[in-house]
C-alpha cells in the first residue's frame, strides 16, 4: 500500500497529465456524437452572449451586402405571390356556414422563424453556427435552417435563448437532395476540404447530369421542405467501381457571410420520424 502511494507521489505530474489528456479525449468523442450534456448547454448560454456582442459589432461592416441579399430575397418572394398570377374565375362560391375553416382541408405544415446568426465557423473540419433564438422562442432539435440564398444546416442543440446549428460543412451532416431537372435523388455531404463545395453522392449513373445543374432539397427529407436551393453542380466524377456519380456541388449559401437565417419548423416532423424509426426497429 505504501509503495502505491509512493509511486503515485513520484509520478503525480505524469499521472495527472495522462488523466487530463484522457478527460479531453473522452470529451471530444462524447461531444462529436451527442450534444446533450448539461454542461455544454449551460456554457452555450454564456458563450452565446459574448458571440452576440461581437456579431452586433461586426454586422455593421456587412450591412450593405446583407441589405442587398434581403432585397433580392424580397423581390423573389414577391414574384412568387399568388396575386401576381391570374386564373380565369370559374369557381362557384357557396356559403354554407360562417366558419372560416378551409374547405379543402389545408393545414399549415411548415413555419419559418427568422433568426440572427451570432456565431459561425467554417475553417474547422466540423462547423457549427450559433443563432439567437432558442427553445423559449420555439426552436427544437432537428429543425432545418436556410439562409436567403440556400439551405444552411440543421439545429442540433438548443438552450433557452440560443441554438446551435450543425452547418452543411460538417462531416456528420447529411441532407437528402435531388437534381432539379430530373428529380434524381442523392445525399449531400461534406468532405472537409473546401467551404465552397459540397459532395452529392449516390446519384445514379443513368441520370443525365451537366455542369451548372441546379440541386434542390428532395421530397424525402423529414425536416427540410422540398425544392429549397442547395447549390449547382461544379464537377462530375464517375466512380468506376459503382453505379453512382459523385458530384461536386458549389454551395448556394455563402457560409463566410451568412447573417440572417430562417429556421423551418415542420409540424409533422415528430410524427414522421417516429413512424420511420418504429418501422426501422422491426
Amino acid at each position: 500500500m505504501k509503495n502505491i502511494f509512493l509511486f503515485i507521489r513520484q509520478y503525480f505530474v505524469f499521472l495527472s497529465f495522462l488523466l487530463l489528456e484522457a478527460v479531453s479525449i473522452v470529451m471530444l468523442t462524447q461531444t462529436s456524437k451527442t450534444h446533450e450534456t448539461y454542461f455544454f448547454s449551460a456554457a452555450n448560454q454564456v458563450t452565446g452572449v459574448v458571440n452576440d456582442r461581437y456579431s452586433q459589432f461586426r454586422s455593421y461592416f456587412t450591412l450593405q451586402a446583407t441589405n442587398k441579399e434581403l432585397a433580392a430575397e424580397n423581390s423573389r418572394l414577391r414574384n412568387a405571390l399568388g396575386m401576381n398570377f391570374q386564373t380565369p374565375d370559374s369557381t362557384v362560391k357557396q356559403k354554407i356556414d360562417s366558419s372560416f375553416r378551409d374547405s379543402l382541408g389545408q393545414t399549415r405544415k411548415f413555419t419559418y422563424l427568422p433568426a440572427r446568426v451570432v456565431g459561425n465557423s467554417y475553417t474547422l473540419p466540423n462547423n457549427y453556427l450559433t443563432i439567437e433564438r432558442g427553445s423559449a422562442q420555439g426552436i427544437s432539435k432537428g429543425m432545418a435552417v436556410m439562409g436567403p440564398s440556400g439551405i444552411v444546416g440543421v439545429v442540433v442543440e438548443t438552450s433557452p435563448d440560443y441554438s446551435k446549428v450543425m452547418s452543411l460543412l460538417h462531416r456528420n451532416s447529411k441532407v437528402s437532395a435531388m437534381l432539379k431537372k430530373n428529380n434524381q435523388t442523392g445525399s449531400i455531404e461534406w468532405d472537409g476540404s473546401d467551404a465552397h463545395f459540397l459532395v452529392l453522392r449516390n446519384v445514379s449513373k443513368s441520370a443525365k447530369v451537366a455542369k451548372g445543374d441546379t440541386v434542390l432539397t428532395s421530397t424525402y427529407s423529414a425536416n427540410f421542405p422540398s425544392h429549397l436551393m442547395v447549390g449547382t453542380v461544379a464537377a462530375i466524377q464517375a466512380d468506376p467501381s459503382s453505379n453512382f456519380y459523385t458530384l461536386k456541388i458549389k454551395t448556394a449559401t455563402n457560409f463566410f457571410t451568412v447573417q440572417w437565417v430562417d429556421v423551418i419548423a415542420n409540424k409533422n416532423y415528430g410524427a414522421q420520424t417516429e413512424l420511420e424509426n418504429s418501422s426501422k426497429n422491426q
Binding site: F12, V13, S16, F17, L20, E21, V23, S24, I25, V26, M27, L28, Q30, T31, S32, F40, A43, V46, T47, V50, N51, G119, S121, L124, N126, Y128, K164
Partner: peptide
C-alpha cells in the same frame, strides 16, 4: 501541476467557443 491545470482550462475555454470540447484542451495539456 498548476501549469497542467491552467493549460487544460485554457484549452477548454477555446473549445467552448469553437464547439469542439476537448480538441484544443488535449494539445494544450
Amino acid at each position: 501541476f498548476p501549469l497542467l491545470l491552467i493549460a487544460f482550462l485554457y484549452g477548454l475555454c477555446l473549445d467552448e467557443f469553437t464547439g469542439t470540447l476537448g480538441l484544443h484542451a488535449a494539445p494544450c495539456v
